[in-house]
Computed example of a mutant assay.
Amino acid sequence: MVNEISIEQDIVKTIRGILGESPLLLHEPYFVGNEWLYLKECLDTRFVSSVGKFVDQFEKQLAEYTGSKYAIAVVNGTAALHIALKLSGVENDDEVIIPSLTFIATANAVSYCGAIPHFVDSEESHLGIDPIALREYLKSMTEFRDGKCINTQTGRVIRAIVPMHTFGHPSKLDELLALAKDFNLELIEDAAESLGSYYYGKHTGTFGKFGTLSFNGNKTITTGGGGALLTQDENLAKLAKHITTTAKLPHRWEYVHDQIGYNYRMPNINAALGCAQLESLPSFLKSKRDLYESYRRGFENLKNVELISEPRHCKSNYWLQTIKLSWEQKNLLDVRNRVLELTNDSGVMTRPVWRLLHSLKPFELCPSMPMVVAKKLEASLINIPSSAHLLPKDE
């Protein structure tokens, strides 16, 4: 029988054997291209705020890279998701289905609309919303009134569903799109973590009415702080750009605003950083895939530990490399915590998956389904060092 006490030592030894003895952070930005050149141009021309050529250039390049017809750059991924929900018809007192296993920004954006997060379970292979369990759950507790999906327990309209592509691994989009159609829900993708990930050859964030991206400092590429909306609808794209620019009507000098708007536009200096980062994205993705392969070889003979791999028919960006402790282990949460303690004490930064959102104080009264799989994932998933530059040069 495997001695559970040895698991944490084995994990540290495996990671150190691959990456060496230097301190290892979880995910650092990597600047090896034209970042300094483009930032200097912003400073030299003094176009550092929301006006400047790099904003338009970044949006164009994002649309081209993802295959989306339109991309609208904003200040962060949460702002992108807020506007996507608002323009998808989410209103005060509506419910929006989101996974409990996600970063809190997903739930916060729903709350910004005055809506209520409705938390649902995840599944093991993709780490996203479980469409089979969710379908049975909705069949048991909803009904249609005037074409709207009604939660019979609360009387509220369930307006939308927001799958999140966990750590860059695409959710089961075909089944979720079918579910959204059957229950008359708008589908908005939280693709904050999945730039460079594909589902059956199509980029994540381009399946629903909107997709949203994040370019925070710890993402695959960064603009410092930033996000974007993706949409295939020209009118929605124009409206999104308008209301994220304080809903100001174009004029040479007059300040006329035709509705409540938001100061959400991405500054030019951030977009300049993004343009340079996009140029390096293919090499970042290759390096992260190479890192995955090195981890795969290192962990393949380690008992009770599994490296998370991209799902079938998907191409993941491997934003955060992730190990899963065996669910059969006794006291799984204690084992996870020992791993986290020893790795971090040893200079190997690791992190657990997020605390399930339905258990947090701001959301503890929100509706939720039984979290059979999500609770196991919460107790077993650990993110390990994932930066694009980690492998030695001879790898």
Rank of each mutant, 00 (worst) to 15 (best):
Y38K: 13
E41H: 13
E41P: 00
E41D: 12
C42K: 09
L43M: 14
L43R: 15
D44C: 01
D44S: 08
R46G: 00
R46A: 04
S49F: 13
S50K: 15
V51N: 11
G52M: 04
G52T: 06
K53M: 05
K53V: 12
K53L: 10
V55W: 13
V55L: 08
D56L: 06
Q57Y: 02
K60P: 05
K60R: 15
A63I: 14
A63Q: 14
A63G: 11
E64K: 15
E64W: 05
T66Y: 13
T66A: 12
G67I: 11
S68Y: 11
S68C: 08
S68K: 12
S68A: 15
K69P: 01
Y70S: 00
I72C: 05
I72N: 08
I72W: 10
I72E: 09
A73R: 15
V74K: 11
V74N: 04
N76C: 02
N76W: 00
N76R: 07
G77A: 04
T78C: 10
A79D: 12
A80L: 11
L81I: 08
L81H: 09
L81D: 07
H82P: 03
A84D: 00
L85A: 03
L87S: 02
L87H: 13
L87Y: 14
S88P: 08
G89V: 00
V90I: 05
V90F: 06
V90W: 03
V90K: 07
E91R: 13
D93P: 01
D93H: 15
E95C: 01
I97Y: 03
L101S: 02
T102W: 09
F103T: 15
F103N: 11
I104F: 10
A105E: 06
A105C: 08
T106W: 11
A107H: 08
S111K: 15
G114A: 08
G114S: 07
G114W: 12
I116A: 03
P117K: 07
H118E: 04
F119T: 08
V120L: 09
V120G: 07
V120D: 05
E123I: 01
E124T: 13
E124L: 14
S125T: 13
H126M: 04
L127F: 10
L127S: 07
L127T: 04
G128V: 04
I129R: 13
D130V: 01
D130T: 03
D130E: 05
P131W: 02
P131L: 02
A133K: 15
L134H: 10
L134K: 13
E136R: 14
L138E: 06
M141H: 02
M141S: 01
E143N: 10
E143I: 03
F144H: 13
F144W: 08
D146F: 04
D146L: 01
D146I: 02
G147H: 05
K148F: 01
K148W: 01
K148G: 00
K148S: 04
C149K: 07
C149Q: 09
C149A: 09
N151W: 05
Q153E: 10
Q153W: 07
T154P: 08
R156P: 02
R156W: 04
V157L: 02
R159T: 06
V162A: 03
P163E: 09
M164I: 12
H165T: 03
H165M: 05
T166F: 12
